[in-house]
């Protein structure tokens, strides 16, 4: 009996806590469909009286959200693509190839990992301006082509693959390049998935750097475009919520399908930024 009561209390606590955690999302989605009258009611109305996409249409008409969306996708895909490529090559070199200073360079990288990005902004901003990349899409991609953190994760995984596989392939006449892409990368698929997901999320949600380097509407990505939109739509919170939904919803869908990969990656060393 006592056990049943505790059991019940555990569930009650977790459910209430879970509802609190989900409340902001619920409120965002529900408000995205409300009318101006419904959103300015007290006591607040939990659900919109009718489902209509009019808020989305109005938001997309007031600001180029379609453009932001395309930009975000473009930045995410190219950034993840390039970073994954440099990460695979570097992790392989640090894990399986021998060159002088290998461990020294690697421990220097680990030390660099604690530098916060905030500290690099000042110079990177000037660099971007100097390269004539200010207010362009490449400015959002180039500073993130090398990630020590992802290289570190992948190198650890590569280290766990037995050297005998490497020597088998070498004896069979395989080059390092072929071995890397034909053997190592397919075996490392779970680790790579985690890296790609974490990196994609970081890119999709990235706010601070775009805020520094993107000025014109046509080059904004979603999170930064959304904040700019608040000044125009400040008095229409339902439009803001519709726009926010566009930013948040794809990620939620992704999380439903890839929760395990993401959680594993986070548990292994944290999220960046």
């Amino acid at each position: 009996m006592k056990q049943k009561v505790t059991r019940f209390l555990v569930y009650l606590f977790l459910i209430i806590g879970g509802l609190i955690m989900l409340l902001p999302f619920f409120w965002m989605f529900s408000s995205a469909f409300k009318t101006t009258q419904e959103i300015n009611k007290f006591p607040p109305q939990w659900l919109p009286s009718s489902i209509s996409l009019v808020n989305f249409q109005r938001a997309f008409a007031m600001a180029p959200f379609a453009r932001y969306f395309v930009n975000s996708i473009l930045v995410m895909v190219s950034s993840v693509g390039i970073t994954t490529f440099t990460t695979i090559l570097a992790a392989f070199a640090f894990s399986k190839l021998h060159f002088p200073g290998r461990s020294l360079i690697f421990s220097m990288l680990l030390a660099l990992m604690m530098i916060p990005f905030e500290m690099l902004i000042i110079t990177n901003y000037s660099t971007v301006v100097q390269l004539k990349l200010w207010d362009t899409i490449p400015a959002l991609i180039l500073p993130f082509t090398s990630s020590i953190f992802y290289t570190y994760i992948l190198k650890n995984f590569f280290d766990s693959i037995s050297d005998s596989l490497y020597w088998s392939a070498r004896i069979d006449g395989s080059s390092n390049w072929r071995y890397l892409w034909k053997v190592m990368v397919p075996i490392a698929r779970p680790s790579l998935t985690t890296i790609i997901l974490l990196n994609g999320l970081a890119s999709w949600n990235s706010f601070m750097w775009p805020m520094y380097v993107i000025a014109s509407d046509k080059n904004r990505t979603l999170p930064w475009g959304l904040q700019v939109f608040t000044t125009e739509a400040g008095s229409y919170p339902e439009l803001l919520m519709a726009a926010s939904t566009v930013v948040v919803f794809p990620v939620i869908i992704l999380f439903f399908f890839c929760r395990k990969y993401i959680v594993r990656g986070v548990a292994r060393g944290g999220l960046k930024g």
């Binding site: 037995s162 596989l165 088998s168 070498r170 004896i171 395989s174 053997v183």
Partner: peptide, 19 residues
């Protein structure tokens, strides 16, 4: 270099490509 020697090598852990 190993690839030119024309040898076959079987490791203790077999080193088969798992994928």
């Amino acid at each position: 270099p190993p690839e030119k020697r024309g040898i076959g090598l079987v490791f203790q852990n077999y080193a088969l490509y798992p994928h």
